[in-house]
Design a protein around this nucleic acid. Structure first.
Length: 837
DNA sequence: GCAAGGTC
């Protein structure tokens, strides 16, 4: 039996389909899907892994024996000798604190300062990460006479394959192993790869493994250092890493530029004209006036004028080149403009690739390989009706000359369509992305677009105003690729010397703007430029920075903590804050892949460098600790406590983890304020009514609002509203009112009967928006209807969560989307939207 | 409780 090992399940299935003479049989081995098929009269089976199935970690314990030296004791297997440099003390250790190292030394899992120098040199073992898959793999491997590693064709793929092989070798030491290399899951590629099998490139796998080890060692040592130097409780990890820290540094650097920026005033003058048919606007030719005097002089000069004269019309044609082939970043940027986030785009691209519609989505290359049969690919796309006429035009041109991007590599071709698709075969979002990729491909084979720009000058009392218009005269690639194209701005038909009505001018004062903060999309592009992370990981790196609270908001700004971490590492561990470390690592990995260096050489050197870094960092621990402490306090700072004068801070409840504002003088001072649901930011302006700090609250899908933190402040008082009579009490002959009110402590708004103690009638209410009573009662349950007016307009709703009318609606919805039992809150929301006018 | 890299 021949065993094919792929990186993921979908690839295993697809390869089985493409290689098998008949449809492959889906089977399961210990819950892992496998695919059995027949080829050349032989039995084959393919299994997909789940990316990396092994994970590196430190050996948990090392031991020092007087006569043997340092020994590592891995989780499984015999202990072996370790090179711990002689400058590190041997036990028994003399430290000021309790001796932390005894004969059996826990280093791998130790979060103690004293252990860090040893951690730098701790040996690394590989632990199983996907136990189920490993079990299935071994089970199949026992029976295999031939093993073909068919993981993705890149460095990590080679590593994943070699990890799989080491698992296989534990149960099968003899079966020959070969490697299939392919860069698209299509028949010609796959058959070619399996008819031209090569060897697994162990050097390349070792290059990948050194990346894993260096990332782990540096990441773990620096993360543990930052976390314990100023321990802030479990769940408060201060992380650092080869990719995330330089990325953070980019954000911090941009913030510094913004802080150093001195804005300058300038003035812009715009004038309105009309040719008698339609109005148009023009800007004074000066553009930005540096002084108000200069601007005023122009305003005075044109003041009272009735007419302007068209003093010049310039027409100039310019060409816009066809776009270059898509690599991952190019695709993400173009898709972002169509409303698909980077993460979503990659998910969709992966599934299109898996289904064989498009080529491998994780590429840097932007140059088509010469092996591409471009006319054949265009012919394939002409099966899509919407592209057919354009494809015919392209093919009629004869030779097709594609555009080329700046990045050229041979690992994968740029992202291109592999077969025709149609909107009914794909999910809407998949089709959207396929459409983008297919049209982009056709665009790269097309002529440039020609655009005619018109510049019109209009003089008013010797002051010249200018307006511009654009019209496409030869669409070229624009005919098939409308993305990112500006709409034509068409000017009225004007002639030189023509008189037009002058409808007045306005002068606007503006200020020059500091460099903009990064958006997530821009940051990803910047990371790519610097070689930070991979196409598959950049988005998750940014997420990580959000999670450890180094950065906030979008566009991204650093927190004080983020700035402090960056400063501390920049001073004492500059290697980790610069993208240079990644560049060095890339070089080293290439040398390992080429056989010019060994994995051990590279990793050992990296350990020595980290050792030097740690020697810088450790003596400055107090400094770093206080800088981090101050930064955390600054991030949490809300204002001054009215009772004791200490700082009010954002805090998380120990029990519920929910946020509130509390005094830093606790437990001596017990001042607290509740926080409403949603995203909360402290604003600088104090409450105009009571002078307390204010917060900006952005609740889910609503506009932000600013409010005083003190629930008892007059600005937060909302009169109780009588919304109707209590039906339950009325049935008992009592005349009781239902009152909409807020809990003074939690600020939660709800409706309650004034006789609540006895009847227990209460209804939930939306927390925001102005509330009004109505005369109506709900036809389904008799509860009083209310109107809530938010930024999105007024809604009329029945507040009763258990209203039978809601059951009806939910029931109707359940048929369409079953098993969506929503929480109380969202259920209320859903219905309120429905019943809105 | 760490990293970054795969994949889901």
């Amino acid at each position: 039996m021949k065993l094919v090992v792929t990186e993921k399940n979908n690839a295993a299935q697809r390869i089985a389909e493409l290689l098998g003479v008949k449809k492959p049989k889906s089977d399961k081995v210990y819950n892992t899907p496998v695919y059995r098929f027949e080829r050349d009269g032989e039995e084959w089976v393919s299994i997909g892994l789940r990316g990396h199935i092994l994970e590196p970690d430190f050996v948990p314990t090392i031991t020092y024996k007087r006569n043997k030296g340092w020994l590592a004791t891995p989780d499984d297997g015999a202990s072996y000798k370790v090179d711990i440099p002689s400058f590190l003390p041997k036990p028994p250790f003399k430290t000021k604190r309790k001796p932390f190292l005894a004969d059996g030394v826990a280093i791998g899992g130790s979060w103690k300062m004293d252990a860090l120098p040893y951690l730098v040199y701790a040996p690394i073992q590989k632990n199983p990460k996907e136990k189920d898959i490993i079990r299935s793999l071994k089970n199949l491997a026992k029976k295999a006479d031939d093993i073909i590693i068919a993981t993705d064709f890149d460095r990590e793929g080679e590593l994943i394959g070699s990890d799989a092989l080491s698992c296989i070798r534990e149960v099968n030491t003899t079966a020959p192993v070969s490697r299939a290399r392919y860069s698209a899951l299509i028949k010609p590629e796959i058959t070619h790869a399996f008819e031209n099998l090569v060897e697994l490139d162990m050097n390349l796998a070792h290059a990948g493994e050194s990346r894993q080890e260096i990332d782990l060692i540096w990441g773990a040592v620096l993360t543990r250092y930052l976390t314990i130097v100023k321990f802030a409780g479990y769940g408060n990890v201060r992380s650092s890493g080869r990719v995330q820290t330089p990325t953070l540094a980019l954000i911090v650097e941009r913030e510094r530029e913004r802080m150093a920026f001195v804005p300058e005033d300038y003035w812009v003058i715009k004038a309105k004209f009309s040719d008698g048919i339609e109005p148009f606007e023009a800007t004074h030719k000066e553009g930005r006036f540096k002084t108000q005097e200069a601007a005023d002089a122009v305003m005075n000069a044109v003041n009272g004028a009735q007419f302007g004269t068209v003093s010049g019309i310039e027409k100039r044609k310019r060409t816009v080149s066809a776009p270059t082939p898509f690599n991952t970043t190019g695709l993400m940027a173009a898709a972002a403009a169509e409303g698909l986030s980077p993460a979503r785009t990659m998910r969709l691209a992966e599934s299109l690739y898996m289904a064989g519609y498009t080529s491998y989505p994780r590429v840097d290359n932007t140059v088509y390989p010469s092996s591409f049969d471009l006319p054949a690919m265009v012919k394939t796309l002409s099966e899509v009706p919407a592209y057919e006429p354009y494809c015919r035009q392209l093919l009629a041109k004869g030779t097709l000359t594609p555009t080329r991007g700046k990045q050229e590599s041979t690992d994968h071709p740029p992202i291109v369509p592999m077969q025709a698709a149609s909107p009914d075969k794909l999910q809407p979002a998949e089709w959207k992305l396929y459409n983008l990729i297919a049209r982009r491909f056709l665009a790269t084979l097309s002529d440039a677009a020609v655009i005619e720009g018109t510049k019109v000058s209009v003089d008013v009392n010797d002051e010249t105003f200018i307006t511009r218009g654009d019209v496409v005269v030869k669409p070229g690639f624009r005919a098939i690729y409308p993305y990112g194209a500006k709409k034509d701005t068409i000017l009225p038909q004007l002639n030189e010397g023509q008189q037009v009505d002058f409808l007045g001018a306005t002068c606007e004062q503006k200020q020059t703007e500091p460099p903009a903060r990064y958006s997530q999309g821009k940051l990803i592009q910047e990371m790519e430029k610097l070689g930070l992370g991979t196409k598959a990981t950049r988005h998750s790196i940014i997420d990580r920075l959000y999670n450890v609270k180094y950065i906030q908001n979008d566009p991204i700004e650093p927190s004080q903590l983020g700035i402090a971490v960056c400063d501390a590492l920049g001073r004492f561990a500059p290697q980790i804050t610069s993208p240079g470390m990644t560049a060095e690592l890339e070089k080293d990995m290439n040398q390992i892949a080429d056989g010019d260096k060994t994995q051990k050489e590279v990793v050992d050197l990296s350990r020595d460098i980290l050792n030097d870094v740690l020697k810088e960092l450790m003596p400055h621990s107090e400094e770093v600790a206080s800088a981090l402490g101050d930064a955390v306090a600054a991030d949490a700072y809300v204002g001054t406590c009215p009772k004791c004068g200490k700082d009010l801070q954002m805090r998380a409840s120990n029990k519920t983890k929910s946020m509130f504002i509390g005094c830093s003088g606790w437990p001596e001072c017990d001042v607290t304020y509740p926080l409403p649901k949603g995203k909360v930011e402290v604003v600088e302006e104090k409450c105009p009514v009571c002078g307390m700090p204010q917060i900006k609250v952005t609740a889910f899908r609503s506009k932000p609002r600013v409010q005083c933190i003190d629930p008892n402040c007059d600005s937060n008082q909302e009169p109780d509203v009588i919304v109707g009579a209590c039906k339950a009490c009325a049935e008992k002959g009592l005349d009781k009112k239902l009152i909409a009110q807020r809990n003074p402590r939690t600020l939660k708004r709800f409706i309650r009967c004034e006789n609540y103690e006895e009847c227990g009638v209460s209804y939930p209410l939306p927390q925001h928006g102005e509330l009004k009573a109505t005369e109506e009662v709900c036809p389904d349950c008799g509860a009083p209807m209310v109107i809530v007016t938010t930024g999105r307009g007024p809604w009329k709703l029945c507040p009763n969560f258990d209203c039978p009318g809601k059951e009806k609606e939910e029931g109707a919805e359940d048929k369409k989307a079953p098993a969506k039992r929503t929480t109380r809150k969202t259920a209320t929301k859903k219905t309120t939207r429905k019943t809105s006018k």
